[in-house]
Simulated assay, not measured.
Amino acid sequence: MKLYTIGFTKKSAERFFGLLREAEVTTLVDVRLNNVSQLAGFAKRDDLKYLLSEICGINYTHRLDLAPTQSLLDDYKKHGASWTTYEDRFFELMRHRRIEDTIPQELLNNAVLLCSEDKAHHCHRRLVAAYLAQRWNNVTIEHLG
């Protein structure tokens, strides 16, 4: 199984959709807690769903069960919790949600996990991919651009 991740921040629409087309992903799985923010530009939910279909022939789905809780996100972004604390709490949240049992593997086969962060290093999409790769067989992960 090939699983990709991507963030839209600091990417033009041309670069973003080009990366998705080059990778030949079939489904974009939006793992953002808030996917309708005015700051999202072309990546707002309804616009993104339309553009993915029209430009790349890619399906769109939003999975809140792969997003952090608002309190977890606020603790990290607004209250100064460390990245290590955030990682630990997010891994615990995924264990509690049992995402390895509730997310259909076929949904994520040749799919890309989307979040806003430019790089995967400090983004929960990387944590989701790593968590599932530890629990499912033969998962390879590639972080796009």
Results as ranks from 00 to 15, higher is better:
112 V>W: 01
47 D>R: 15
8 F>G: 01
71 S>E: 14
127 L>Q: 05
36 V>T: 15
103 I>F: 06
92 E>W: 13
107 L>R: 13
93 L>K: 02
58 I>P: 00
127 L>N: 03
9 T>A: 12
58 I>Q: 03
49 K>A: 13
123 C>T: 07
75 D>G: 10
14 E>G: 04
135 R>D: 11
66 L>F: 01
50 Y>S: 12
55 I>F: 08
65 D>M: 01
29 V>F: 07
14 E>P: 02
65 D>N: 00
65 D>V: 02
51 L>E: 12
43 A>H: 05
50 Y>V: 09
54 E>F: 08
29 V>C: 08
136 W>A: 05
71 S>D: 13
22 E>Q: 13
49 K>R: 15
10 K>R: 14
46 D>Q: 15
92 E>G: 11
14 E>T: 11
54 E>I: 09
143 H>I: 06
78 K>Y: 11
50 Y>P: 01
130 A>D: 14
113 L>W: 02
51 L>S: 12
144 L>W: 03
61 T>N: 12
140 T>C: 03
19 L>H: 14
30 D>R: 00
48 L>E: 04
19 L>Y: 10
116 S>W: 05
74 D>W: 12
141 I>S: 06
133 A>H: 06
89 R>A: 11
115 C>E: 02
91 F>C: 08
23 A>F: 03
58 I>E: 04
140 T>L: 03
96 H>W: 09
89 R>F: 05
129 A>M: 09
55 I>D: 12
81 A>S: 15
34 N>L: 14
52 L>S: 03
43 A>F: 05
58 I>T: 07
77 K>A: 06
72 L>T: 01
90 F>M: 07
97 R>P: 03
64 L>R: 00
86 Y>S: 11
131 Y>T: 06
103 I>Y: 05
75 D>H: 11
6 I>R: 04
2 K>D: 09
102 T>H: 10
124 H>W: 04
135 R>V: 05
129 A>D: 10
8 F>E: 01
30 D>F: 03
127 L>C: 08
16 F>A: 04
129 A>H: 04
75 D>M: 11
36 V>P: 06
21 R>A: 15
138 N>R: 10
12 S>G: 11
3 L>F: 06
121 H>C: 07
114 L>N: 00
23 A>W: 09
46 D>L: 14
21 R>P: 06
34 N>T: 10
49 K>S: 11
141 I>Q: 08
79 H>P: 05
10 K>Y: 11
13 A>H: 04
